[in-house]
Design a protein around this nucleic acid. Structure first.
Lengths: 189, 189
DNA sequence: ACACAAAACTAACAATTGTTAGTTTTATAC
DNA sequence: GTATAAAACTAACAATTGTTAGTTTTGTGT
């Protein structure tokens, strides 16, 4: 039997190290040292290095999938949906900005099965996003700019939040949400 | 004596592999196989794996630094400067999208000296960017949104271009520049 | 005090890593 | 066609990798 709480500590420590150097550059001995134990002791709590990575990434990906599905099925206009997506990203970033580094940069090191699962979720997420923007353009709620560029531009900013937000000292989450909506949706000129 | 052209071939091949799996996950044997030779043969052309990484990253960073300095010193308004920065990113991305993956994700694996040099260039780049936006807000050319958010949002999109643009088949560079300026500067609502 | 599980340890493994040394092949110049 | 340089090769190294086996220590409930 594995102690869930100790396992979670390991995964949290791993998230930080993976964020700093990437999955491949972090050794089990690095992780053990961060935990104050020997490498072999990690295996009392986890099955493999790969399990740590997949736990971090898949949990987060499922959070995004769940959140996006709720938004897609809600009966609000396209702008409001985009606002809710921005909220979703900010919420997840606040809760686990370290893990998001792995999701963004180390997903390709997932093994076969989880890699496919992840890529499917990511693709569906992007398609949902694109559909919302497209719908907004069709209903003339959103300006008729190039849809792919609007999707890419917004999503790349939201995906990179994990790098930027932890460094900001004096920005409250609610203010961030408000300002991010302004910048991303209203533009700056 | 080292053949420059063969060396460049190796660096180009390495850029592609680094983009796919990251610097740490690519072995010299992987790189050799991609070149159709044995790992030891690579060392007739390059000094170390580290040299490959630093060549890729430092060259690109210097391109950005040079480009930004020209823009900063030009006598145009803030909006035009931002447009020129967008152009700069698109030009560099078109020329070397593979290398940009290393610059974005593997800079932390640079050794001491080059790491410091890179971090200095990156910091100055961001400060120049921020100063341009701030100046634009002061002159009322740019809306008075949160400056940090505007800088982060724009820069994160431009930095992620390398992931997105190669997948777009039917977007001409000039059209991309135009549309990107619209989306980033004029907003979509 | 005793039993039992949780969590640490030591020691070691087979494979893989970047790199070097020394040698042979291939191409170029005269 | 011989000399020279460029570019490949084979073989090996010392270090590091993820992981396993087996053992000891620590903590908890009765």
């Amino acid at each position: 039997m594995k102690s869930e709480s100790r396992k979670e500590e390991i995964i949290r420590a791993a998230s930080i190290l993976f964020k700093e150097k990437g999955y491949s550059a972090v050794t089990m001995r690095d992780l053990a040292k961060a935990m104050g134990i020997k490498a072999a002791s990690l295996y009392n709590h986890i099955d493999s290095k790969q399990e740590i990575l997949s736990t971090i990434i898949i949990e987060l990906a499922e959070e995004f999938t769940t959140g996006m599905n709720q938004i897609v099925n809600s009966k609000v206009d396209a702008i409001k949906k985009l606002e809710n997506i921005i909220d979703l990203h900010i919420d997840v970033t606040l809760r686990n900005s370290d893990g998001l580094a792995s999701l963004n940069n180390d997903w390709m090191h997932l093994e076969e099965k989880n890699l496919q699962y992840f890529e499917k979720m990511r693709q569906e997420y992007e398609e949902n996003f694109r559909a919302i923007v497209k719908n907004g353009v069709d209903r003339e709620e959103i300006k008729p700019f190039n849809i792919e560029i609007m999707v890419f531009s917004t999503l790349s900013t939201l995906r990179t939040l994990y790098l930027w937000y932890p460094k900001q000292k004096n920005i409250d989450a609610e203010i961030l949400k408000h300002d991010m909506i302004s910048v991303l949706l209203k533009g700056m000129v």
